[in-house]
């Protein structure tokens, strides 16, 4: 097995080896969501495309996939994390100076090149705004007048990135906010992002959708009602990713290994699979 003998002597890149990053800033976004700013301790990872994710490892606890919500020209990455399980709680619990291990970037990106010169609608539910933030930033820089952003959250305090929402609006993008339950201080829309899309009845040519799975399926269908072809709708799907490179088999959805073939996938490639309960 000569070819295999060659592989054995290759300088072995260990795709599972984390790269140390130090926490330089921790910002509490909501009651259980925090955005960390991390800087590489030594050499950093390759540059991240909007929509890609990193595997984030907390020493002695475990590793989870987290979409990158922003990168800075100085090499920092921003990760917006909700404390759900042991690892995400450990990640959210880090303080300035703590070190986490990062691997990646992994997965597919939002197809921004294909969105150039077209009317784009971005639909975000809850934490789903995080993987979309870089894509919205890029589109705002390019052509904000052809961009609509629909953002939904359970309640007003769960709305992420208030500064960015204002900045996108000021730049000329149409930003629509909605909440499931309105408090006394909320004077905006109440209801789902799907309801907002249906009510606005804007015409679009392309859509990026990210949020809870049910929100994405109903959102994608509402976007079809806004004139977008199913092949021009992109969603970001999540499964139990452990390796990021298609080796551990845990992120399968039909024939897709979502860690490798996703997370950003074309709606018409997954619509049928998402209709099957427990697939």
């Amino acid at each position: 097995m000569d070819s295999l003998a060659d592989l054995g002597t290759m300088p072995a890149v260990e795709p599972m080896e984390p790269t140390p990053y130090r926490v330089t800033h921790s910002r509490r976004e909501t009651v259980d969501v925090t955005t960390l700013t991390l800087v590489p301790v030594a050499a950093g990872l390759a540059s991240v495309l909007p929509g890609q994710y990193l595997m984030v490892w907390a020493f002695g606890v475990g590793e989870i996939p987290i979409s990158v919500s922003r990168t800075l020209p100085t090499g920092e990455v921003l990760l917006t994390v909700r404390a759900v399980g042991a690892t995400s709680t450990a990640v959210v619990g880090t303080t300035v100076g703590d070190v986490l291990g990062l691997r990646g970037p992994f997965g597919t990106a939002w197809p921004l090149a294909a969105a150039a010169g077209r009317d784009l609608v971005v639909v975000a539910g809850g934490l789903g705004l995080a993987p979309l933030r870089m894509a919205i930033d890029a589109q705002v820089a390019q052509d904000p007048t052809r961009l609509s952003v629909v953002v939904g959250a359970r309640e007003q305090p769960q709305l992420l990135y208030a500064d960015d929402l204002q900045r996108w609006t000021a730049a000329g993008a149409r930003v629509h906010l909605t909440v499931d339950a309105a408090g006394r201080s909320w004077h905006g829309a109440v209801g789902t992002t799907t309801a907002v899309l249906e009510r606005l009845a804007e015409r679009h040519e392309m859509a990026f959708v990210c949020g809870p799975e049910l929100m994405m399926t109903s959102g994608a269908r509402a976007v079809v009602g806004c004139g977008v072809q199913p092949s021009d709708i992109w969603v970001s799907l999540e499964r139990n990713m452990h390796c990021g490179i298609g080796h551990c088999g845990r992120c399968q959805l039909g024939s897709q290994l979502l860690c490798r073939d996703g997370a950003v996938v074309r709606w018409d490639h997954v619509e049928r699979l998402l209709e099957v309960r427990g697939r």
Binding site: M1, L4, A5, L7, G8, T9, M10, A12, V13, E14, P15, I245, G246, H247
Partner: peptide, 19 residues
């Protein structure tokens, strides 16, 4: 699976080499 050219598993490659 393990020696997929984009991300070969180095531990598998080492064990498999020269079998």
């Amino acid at each position: 699976v393990e020696l997929d050219p984009s991300h070969p598993d180095p531990r598998y490659a080492q064990r498999r080499a020269g079998t």
